[in-house]
Amino acid sequence: MPEVEYATTMPLGRPQIWEFVKDMNNWAPFVTGYQGHEIIDDTDSIWTLKGDVGILSRTVKLRAHITEWIDQERVTFTLTGLNEKVDGGGVLVMTDDAPATGDDGADADAAPAPTRRRRWFGRRFLDWLFRRMFRRMHGEAPKRLTGPIGAVRSRLSFTLRMDAGGPTGPLVNAMLAPALEPAAEELANKIAAHLERVHLGGDAGAADDAAAA
């Protein structure tokens, strides 16, 4: 059964990542070959993906079923092919990564450090986001933020496995295998890039929202 895992880190706390990841509408367009999805209920959805199988592009419909949902930690799901004999699943895991170690609080491997102006907007946005989340969860404003943005890092890993069944299974799996790793990598990296852009600068809309807040 072809299975891949890809992980990326980002200078954000798990709450920021979770706020985005917990709603699949946010990151669905980042899935490789995404054509559309339909949410059935809290745990089930149907995804239409167009993916390269070997040489040509095929449209595949998959039913995703969430089997585990742990706030700010992980989402585990299964996949069942509706128009192809293929099954699989995966898990998105968020963990705390080692804190930033540089003199300026930034990891040498991290994305380019935000400019002062950008950090200011990003900081304001995250303050706003945190306050909003806190209000939603506790019904009152937080006393103060827990720490400076950039001092926390989180790791987002994405594990994906697919297994084609039926008589052609071995052949289809051989074709799927090379496609899975780029798919996992693309999803994790796009989520990370989006979150960093929104929280740490570069997204005018987010900056405006933050300023308005």
Binding site: G54, P167, T168, G169, P170, L171, N173, A174, M175
Partner: peptide, 15 residues
């Protein structure tokens, strides 16, 4: 006889 094709062999050749 498509079901009898050696798909395992074909997978190996593909790789």
């Amino acid at each position: 006889k498509p079901s009898a094709l050696p798909f395992g062999v074909l997978a190996k050749r593909f790789k």
